[in-house]
Nucleic acid binder design. Structure first.
Ligand SMILES: NC(=O)c1ccc[n+]([C@@H]2O[C@H](COP(=O)([O-])OP(=O)(O)OC[C@H]3O[C@@H](n4cnc5c(N)ncnc54)[C@H](O)[C@@H]3O)[C@@H](O)[C@H]2O)c1
Ligand SMILES: NC(=O)c1ccc[n+]([C@@H]2O[C@H](COP(=O)([O-])OP(=O)(O)OC[C@H]3O[C@@H](n4cnc5c(N)ncnc54)[C@H](O)[C@@H]3O)[C@@H](O)[C@H]2O)c1
Lengths: 213, 213
DNA sequence: AGTTAGCTGTTACAAATTTCACAGCGTTAA
DNA sequence: TTAACGCTGTGAAATTTGTAACAGCTAACT
């Protein structure tokens, strides 16, 4: 089974929407309703859901709970997402406190930093270890993904260290493209780039508006 | 001129790379070098750069400073990117401190929150106003984009308020798809979704590896 | 000056992604 | 029971995005 990047992203989004719908007591939902919430089209929703194998009902749509179960199974997060976070600066700490109340699903099992002042203590419920202990700790943690909130200069070195430990997934906030082996997946979140995009299109839309007048 | 979302994102990235190269004293760069740094192909780099109109030299490649100037002109950020930030929670404050030292290019002109304990003071060099003053403040700020770091429940209401004020671009961190008029550009950063994607593909890559054996 | 090597700009092609369109089905209502 | 409605699943078409290929050019070398 091979689903693209984009499809997986949308499926994750549908999962979130379905869990909201379930908690609201909704039992069935149509592709068109999901499409509106996800800002897509109904055809796209149906097509995306094909990859999970779940089939809806032509009259009632999708059973919310069943589809949610199916997606949870599809994402195979029986014990949720287990992660480590590297770099407990301002962004790292914001993420730690953000995920803390969601621990049952998104569990940051340990954080690491190179500054002694930040290590050896608990930040937002998470043990913060010295980066020297990375390899040792990872051995006992089993299969996890890594969240990189490091200065750009340190990111590549750390990525290499992580892949040497067998890490297969990295969520990278540093504005550099990491070079990793083919069997490692990297997702970049580049806030500055996103902001520039927004500014560019905002400019453009303002100009368009002016031209029309 | 109509450039896609993705092209603009990459151009923004090239801009960052070029500014690094310039500060390193490099005067010329080939499309292939940029491609490696940006994790793309040389053909894609050349194709992307077409939209800026800048032309390189078949023997030396691109003049770093000139191309950087051209990209700056293309992005039309003569006075940098001016923004307001709504929601000074943990993520909002991390962003404020992140952009503070980059103020000349990325200028967060004001922050807003609904909690009185967070307003009427300066956070990371940025005035934090009460959200009631939003409309008043925006009038004097001129053309800006908005960074939304609000709880998901509050995001749509705020987006509507912002578009009513004439805001044309929103960088949205809340995990909801905002409904805005056609002439407003929204870029979503959904950290949880990105993390789920990473976990999914990390799982898949581990499984692939097992199968090969 | 002429030749060469190697890069750019651009067109043509290929792949990926999205949308269309409709057969087929399950529920509902008569 | 049967008919009808409207949604799903999905092959096919359309669109978007990325890649390949190559003519043309320019600096460097002879
Ligand atoms: N803060 C934000 O809002 C924000 C926004 C966008 C992007 N980013 C990016 O995220 C990354 C982190 O940003 P930040 O603002 O949290 O930076 P920061 O300087 O506050 O934090 C970086 C942390 O990494 C630690 N560190 C440095 N080198 C290390 C190493 N080799 N091993 C382990 N730890 C090390 C530092 O001690 C520090 O705690 C940067 O790449 C930045 O560009 C941050
Ligand atoms: N913190 C993170 O690392 C993180 C990561 C991913 C996504 N997010 C998303 O970013 C958003 C903010 O996250 P956070 O952790 O900073 O939350 P937070 O609760 O720490 O901060 C939210 C802030 O918004 C303010 N606020 C609430 N309603 C408001 C209103 N109507 N007008 C103005 N201000 C209002 C609150 O007073 C608070 O200061 C959320 O949607 C969250 O899902 C955060």
């Amino acid at each position: 089974m091979n689903a693209s990047d984009k499809v997986i992203g949308r499926l994750s989004h549908y999962r979130l929407l379905l869990s909201k719908l379930e908690s609201q007591g909704k039992t069935f939902v149509f592709s068109r309703e999901l499409a509106i919430m996800a800002d897509g089209t109904s055809a796209q929703v149906r097509r995306d859901l094909m990859v999970t194998g779940y089939e809806g009902n032509p009259k009632q749509g999708y059973n919310v709970s069943d589809l949610l179960d199916e997606l949870n199974k599809f994402f195979n997060f029986s014990r949720g997402v287990n992660a480590v976070l590297i770099g407990t600066g301002s962004l790292g700490r914001a993420l730690l406190s953000y995920f803390m109340p969601k621990k049952s699903r998104y569990n940051i099992m340990a954080a690491f930093d190179s500054e002694l002042s930040k290590t050896g203590r608990i930040i937002a419920g998470t043990r913060c270890c010295h980066i020297n202990e990375l390899e040792f700790e990872l051995k006992s943690l089993g299969s996890v993904v890594a969240i990189l909130t490091l200065p750009a200069e340190a990111a590549q070195t750390m990525a290499t260290r992580l892949t040497n430990c067998g890490i297969k997934g990295i969520l990278n906030f540093a504005p550099v493209r990491l070079r990793v082996p083919d069997d490692v997946y990297v997702e970049n979140i580049d806030v500055t780039m996103s902001l520039e995009k927004v500014a560019f299109f905002a400019n453009q839309k303002s100009e368009d508006r002016e031209k029309e007048v």
